[in-house]
Amino acid sequence: MKGRIIARAPATGKCETCKYWRPHVVYDYIGYCEKHRRITMNDDTCPYYEPLEIREGEFYWCSTCKTRVSWEEAAEYLKKGYLLHRGAYVEPDIKEELYSVF
């Protein structure tokens, strides 16, 4: 069961604050739209836009600080103007650019 909504991202109408959008883990001006199932730019708009809701018990991706955060932190960060998302988008072939680190 979904947790209680404790905060909402400002309704800018742009992808970067939409609940369906996950920014690229490295270059956060592009990202994946779960609604359209395609990559869009952070300032694109569409009729399905819905601002992100921060819910109790969930984890979020902060693209401002490039870190996964808890719902409490996410709510705090929203107040500071950081950009929060339900997750980050990692492209499938990113491994080609990563060294083998063990």
Partner: peptide, 10 residues
Amino acid sequence: GGPQGGGIES
């Protein structure tokens, strides 16, 4: 220089 995974190797 850039973020790891951002195409620095290429």
